[in-house]
Design a protein around this nucleic acid. Structure first.
Lengths: 340, 340
DNA sequence: TTCTCCGATTAAAACGTTTCAGACAGTACC
DNA sequence: GGTACTGTCTGAAACGTTTTAATCGGAGAA
């Protein structure tokens, strides 16, 4: 059926070892032989069998990725697409897995390792108290995370600078003349949320604007919570003129609340969100937001893992911090001169 | 490092063949032996090596899925999550791949087959003139598609009944008393689009409402086209009182146009979309839409492929048609009595 | 001439499974 | 006591690679 190395060797009149060498150590084989074998390989459409290679080399040429259950605000499609593309370049396959119903998350990883299914992992949806990280670290198994963890110092990770993102959003509003800028955040304690809220404060501090504590509202993610939070802000004696939300869903909720009060978004109240989920562009008015370079994240995550695998120097703790970008749309008001 | 079958056999004091039998043909081994070996397997945390198994059995226990480039209106995350879960149950891994830059789509499939990387494919984003299908058919390689193709009679596929969906949407509006119902569709020629538009006509015909040709507008997908189409409909001498869109993006665009005319969505003009993209629920007012059971699709696709692989009876041409469901939200008007 | 070295090639082992053909001991049957 | 099973277990081959060590012919050095 499929051509094997044996077929190639027979047709080319050389040993299988030579064929293997042509592919893996082209320098040690005579040029003439090389060309002849190459021609046969081409002609037969030969591709080395993955399983055989994996068995012999004791590496699988594939990396595992746990399919996330929820993907709120996470552009899985673009992330994963780039991950796959980049992995392909390094001759690696992406293998998806998920804990079986009732199976512990960590167990799923353990199983993948035990059956020698992957050489390493790409991990997303990290956070405080993530037991996967701890387990992989003590197992000494290669992995790279998207997002920081409790053990960020000990492993490779890629993250988007949430602080810079929130700073960007806030500065944008300051540029447009706003001084009373509110922040709808998550409860303290999440890595991502705390980062972003610090960016808000930094931007204000940089411009010498003092933070009014009552302008910072913390709530869980979602449209409804965003709406409630905004109502609360609007009920203040001295309400803000602009608001930055830690996530687009909250921003969309805030927009609803603003609209319900008969105010015009962008004119009476400027809004900027975070994550640039697809619905941000589709909202009306369209929501200004902070876009994370998810394709770059995917790319970088794989590149780091490849390095780790090549040198198998676990524990070098490479890190990559990417800068998000501000996407200005109608919700942050009529375009003042400065769109940067 | 990892325990192998040899380790187990040594510790349990039996041959490797017996260990293998314990796992694969438990019936032919004495109960006592079985239990003893099982205990050792447990104790050592032994899991059969994937590569070794694949090499010996000449099947890979994995199925390939080409990462789609664009995912408009396709809930990749929920589809893929269920696919992975269901595959796991059948002891199959999902391997992602994508054509390398410059590489032909079909070539990517061919390469996967040649290197014996997968036992079969799950394919989405099908349509007229899809050369992947043709190639796989003549290669006699197992696969199941989500969506019909030019060769639907010759292979297994799963699809959502778009006709029933559009019927549901249209009937819903008829139930609410609308008689002048417009349809914003795609240009004729796409399998999915034509199906859905026929559902619109069927619903009207079933209730004895005649189709006014000028109420059917065809345009490409997207928010802007939807807006333009709606403007066109509103400019009619005798404009519709409700509109069904073949896709949510078009519906969202239509909503923008309606709003811009100073009309109130749901009261002056009812709107129903299709696909129930995340933005539908987030729009304001929230958009009524037709939801496709993507989790069921994923499930079914895998189940069919598993059957195909087991019996290796390619060409049985199993088919599965799933019925979508109507999600009623504010855009289709105040709730009249009948929400079904 | 003989020895050594070198470049090119290859035979064979190994990776961890599954499976086929036997082996082996006991049991039932004639 | 031999034959034929039967139930359990095992040795060895095979799957398609890579890799190590060995072979081999020829060229250069002594």
């Amino acid at each position: 059926m499929r051509a094997t190395i044996k077929d190639v060797s027979r047709v080319a009149g050389v040993s299988v070892a030579t064929v293997s060498n042509v592919l893996n150590s082209p320098d040690i084989v005579a040029e003439q032989t090389h060309d002849r074998v190459m021609a046969v390989i081409e002609q037969l459409g030969y591709k080395p069998n993955r399983a055989a290679r994996a068995l012999q080399q004791q590496r699988t040429f594939s990396i595992g990725y746990q399919m996330p259950r929820e993907t709120d605000g996470f552009a899985l499609d673009v992330f994963l697409h780039r991950v796959v593309e980049r992995a392909e370049e390094a001759d690696l396959a992406i293998v998806l897995f998920a804990p079986r119903p009732g199976q512990d998350q960590v167990d799923a990883y353990r199983e993948m390792i035990r059956r020698g299914a992957v050489d390493g992992f790409v991990i997303s949806a990290t956070g405080h108290g993530d037991d996967r990280i701890e387990h992989l670290l003590e197992a000494g198994f290669p992995f790279v995370t998207f997002g920081r963890t409790d053990f960020s110092g000990d492993h490779a990770w890629v993250d988007v600078d949430g602080c810079a993102g929130a700073d960007l959003a806030t500065a944008h509003l300051l540029d447009r003349g706003h001084r009373e800028i509110a922040f709808i955040g998550w409860p303290e304690g999440s890595i991502t949320g705390d980062e972003r809220s610090s960016g808000y404060r930094r931007a204000l501090a940089d411009r010498g604007v003092s933070v009014r504590p009552e302008l910072v509202v913390r709530t869980e993610n979602g449209v409804e919570p965003g709406s409630t939070a905004m109502q609360q802000l609007l009920d203040l004696e001295n309400p803000p003129t602009a608001v930055v939300a830690v996530q687009d869903l909250l921003a969309l909720g805030a927009m609803n609340a603003i609209r319900e009060r008969g105010l015009t978004i962008g004119r009476d109240m400027a809004v900027v969100g975070f994550d640039d989920i697809p619905s941000a562009a589709l909202a009306s008015p369209a929501l200004s937001s902070i876009r994370q370079p998810m394709d770059r994240v995917g790319e970088l995550v794989v590149e780091m893992l490849v390095e780790e695998l090549d040198e198998d120097s676990v524990g070098t703790a490479r890190t990559g911090i990417l800068t998000p970008e501000l996407v200005v749309r109608a919700s942050s008001g009529p375009d003042g001169g400065s769109t940067r």
